[in-house]
Amino acid sequence: MRDARDRFLRNKAAIACMAVLFLIVVFVLVGPQFSQWSNEEIDWDALGDIQTMGAPSLESGHYFGTDELGRDLFARTIQATGTSLLVGLIGSAMALILGTAWGVIAGYVGGRTDNIMMRLVDILLAIPTTLVIILILIIAGRSFVALFVALGAVSWLTMARIVRAQTLALKNREFIEAARAGGVSETMIVFRHILPNLFGVVIVYASLLIPEMILSESFISFLGLGISEPYTSLGALIAQGAGTMAYGTLWQLLFPLFFYVAIILTMFFIGDGLRDALDPKDR
């Protein structure tokens, strides 16, 4: 573990990205203090003439300009960034928990249980993710919870496969055999020996999942199935900004896009850094 930390700390790109991500989180937490508008308040004066009155300006208090409805883009971007980060974190956390549990059980129990469980994963993998997401959002309505469930539902499958493969490899290793011979209960073996040894692989994969979750959320927003007003996400803001990019209100696209790209990029490099640090054999 110590080695891993050292290796990670030596990775300059990953450390720089950690710093950037930290700044973004600080921005989300502290930013509202500097905002002169709330994320849902309409600036009735700007509403009629977004192109000039809604442009970014210090004077009007709209640092990032306003959206199509005269709502402050600074406040909305902060709120959206928070949402997108949460979506990434919770979505991949769900994948992590479900996928690990499924994979460990299948891999450790083995035999017919393994067969059935993994066959189910194969079937679910064959269902197009678009369909699963759309159906869940249609059935469950549009809320944060539904969004997390939808994203978690499509992403735990690969995690389960990876964890199962690792568990299979681990379960016949000498130290497990030794523990078993020493009379340690099966549950204990899983918790004491298998799970800690899976940690590296699982964390690496989960960190790579975060940007994927954020990308998927933006696709959902593009289809108009994202979260409800007045809340918003970076994907939703970008989808709106992309629609109006030719109408002289380019800031509506650029500000959210900047934060979006920044988050995705830092996540990529942090994920790569984690992989290099935790899983040196893989290189």
Binding site: E40, I42, E68, L69, G224, E229, P230, Q240
Partner: peptide
């Protein structure tokens, strides 16, 4: 769900 219905509802 629709851009313009959303605008009216929010307003």
């Amino acid at each position: 769900t629709s851009e313009s219905h959303k605008k009216v509802a929010v307003a």
